[in-house]
Write a protein that binds this DNA or RNA. Structure first.
Lengths: 104, 104
DNA sequence: TCTATTTATATCATATCTGATATAGGAAAG
DNA sequence: CTTTCCTATATCAGATATGATATAAATAGA
């Protein structure tokens, strides 16, 4: 994905469904973005129920900064960090599979 | 994940279930590795049914080289490239969710 | 209010991942 | 044996993601 296209991840409050109309994303790129947004949203919901961003960061050896970015769909956060973070909330592969399945 | 731990991804032919005994992986790290292995395996199966590595590479603007590495669970391949590759085979979020759910 | 805690944003050097290139192995057909 | 096509592996410069640090903005409680 090109840098310019990752900018949509910074459009935090935007309604999904309008993003691919605004930027010229292929269907596959759109799905990938929606998967990332869904993972970010789920991470925030799961994490808030049980611990602070700092605590979660400690579990996977990263910083509170990066967890905040992950939960806010910052473009600098990879799928890998999103998945690692969600796993640190106790999510199972089934949980993660469900989040992704629900995208579409 | 530390570089040394990514080496297990190079243990291509190994039986899953023995890897976390050999390397000192946390349960979360083990799950992440297993997710990557499952995605690699699924990518290869799906792609082989419909096109060559070069054709798939062309669809997402990468090289045959990287698709070969993705299908062989090379440690240099990110989750992002794996997902982008699988999407290029026509996989839906439900397909991908199912692959990950099946991990455990 | 003040203070402590949590979350968010910016910057940066380093680490990791990338596409590209070169090259070789392997399989199928002539 | 060649040739052709497909796949695998190694290397590398440049791009992207990383953890760390600093700082500010919320949020909550006294």
């Amino acid at each position: 994905m090109e840098p310019s296209k990752q900018e949509l991840l910074e459009a935090k409050g935007w309604k999904i469904g309008t993003v691919s109309d605004f930027l010229d994303l292929t269907p596959e790129e759109t799905i990938l973005v929606e998967i990332k947004l869904a993972l970010s949203k789920s991470l925030k919901e799961r994490r808030q129920k049980m611990m602070t961003q700092s605590e979660l960061a400690g579990k996977i050896g990263t910083s509170e900064t990066r967890i905040a970015k992950a939960e806010n769909s910052d473009a600098s956060v990879s799928l890998e960090l999103l998945i690692r973070s969600i796993l640190a909330t106790g999510a199972t592969p089934k949980d993660i599979g469900q989040i992704i399945s629900d995208v579409g």
